[in-house]
């Protein structure tokens, strides 16, 4: 089900040196405020530091500049540089708060997608269509999208740089994030809250497509694939984010490598051992905590419900072929 929907490069690459391309015009206030404060800061900072250097040079020891005979108490100045910054910061607060409200209060008509954060991938579920996807979130353009998010293990954070939005994904609680994409394209999803070994590879793609393509995507994803099993398995290895923890080249990652796994004797943390047959592989996918290979942590999430029966078979066939 690799999405052939968008071919262009990630829109993270575009934009100026400083910001990724803004994908939602309504969030323009954020960028404007940022640059406003940036340039005011540059101006004020240059003025303050410039005055400091100027005074430092003018009144350097031994210079001929005249020094005042008596010290001014400067009450007026003290009041001025207390009140003016106060007014400035409070006015930018109002601006930022209004923008913030707009960006967190979801519109009532939003199309809802369920997001589950797991170590270390994102799972997206379209409740109406009965479709589940991993790491690729496909949504229609020009539509309000609301994500209802929760985590299965630790705290993650769903970060959409192009939309200037971010929200932590918590275990035992639902948080939400909404957005509205103005243009089609491929956008980056990051996990922004540190969540362990795979934190930096817990990446996803937001694929914004036309309504038509979105419908086709859902229809195709809910149908059973008729691809040859090992090929399907290879695709699943990528699309279900197995590669985050398991290599296919023999080197150990967070989990054991999958190379030459089938038929080999496995030793487990509880001291038992077993030949890796088809049922062992199935169990490892669906109940990974049942047997943990020696030297590894029991951190793998279950794929129960994430894989259809044919996909499980495809996965096993693919693993058999890895020699």
């Amino acid at each position: 089900m690799a999405p052939p929907l968008v071919t262009n490069e990630s829109l993270m690459h575009l934009g100026d040196l400083w910001f990724p391309t803004l994908a939602e015009k309504a969030m323009g206030g954020v960028d404007l405020l940022y640059w406003g404060i940036f340039w005011v800061s540059v101006g004020l900072g240059a003025a303050i530091f410039g005055v400091a250097v100027y005074l430092g040079m003018k009144y350097r020891r031994g210079s001929a500049a005249a020094r005042p005979e008596s010290e001014h108490q400067g009450m007026a100045m003290e009041v001025a540089w207390t009140v003016i910054p106060l007014v400035l910061v409070l006015s930018v607060f109002v601006w930022s708060f209004l923008d913030h409200l707009r960006s967190v209060v979801p519109p009532a008509d939003a199309y809802e997608v369920r997001v589950l954060g797991k170590k270390w991938f994102w799972q997206f579920e379209y409740p109406q269509a009965g479709v589940t996807a991993i790491n690729d979130l496909v949504v229609p353009v020009n539509r309000n999208i609301k994500l209802n998010m929760s985590s299965e293990d630790v705290i993650h954070s769903f970060f959409l740089p192009n939309f200037r939005r971010k929200k932590d994904v918590l275990p035992n609680r639902t948080t939400s994030l909404w957005f509205h994409a103005d243009r089609e394209g491929k956008y980056q999803i990051f996990c922004a809250e540190y969540c362990g070994d795979g934190h930096s590879v817990m990446l996803g793609n937001l694929l914004v497509v036309s309504q038509e393509a979105f419908d086709q995507y859902l229809a195709k994803a809910s149908a059973t694939s008729d691809e040859p099993l090992p090929q399907l398995g290879k695709k699943l290895y990528q699309s279900k984010a197995c590669f985050t923890c398991h290599t296919v080249d023999g080197s150990a990652g967070t989990g054991p490598s999958l190379l030459g796994l089938y038929g080999k004797k496995r030793r487990f943390a509880d001291g038992s051992s077993l030949d890796a047959d088809e049922n062992y592989l199935r169990e490892s996918l669906l109940v990974p905590a049942a047997r943990v290979v020696q030297g590894f942590q029991p951190v793998m999430p279950t794929y129960q419900g994430l894989l259809k029966e044919r996909e499980i078979t495809a996965m096993i066939e693919y693993l058999k072929g890895l020699k």
Binding site: L101, R102, V141, N144, S210, Q211, E212
Partner: peptide, 30 residues
């Protein structure tokens, strides 16, 4: 509390279109 509404107008009526496509999934969306 804030008399702020989300700035995005909700979709109303069947004549509303998205990119020229009729909103066929209106029934599906919650």
């Amino acid at each position: 509390n804030f008399s702020i509404k989300s700035p995005v107008k909700p979709l109303t009526g069947s004549n509303h279109t998205i990119d020229g496509h009729p909103p066929r999934h209106e029934g599906r969306a919650p």
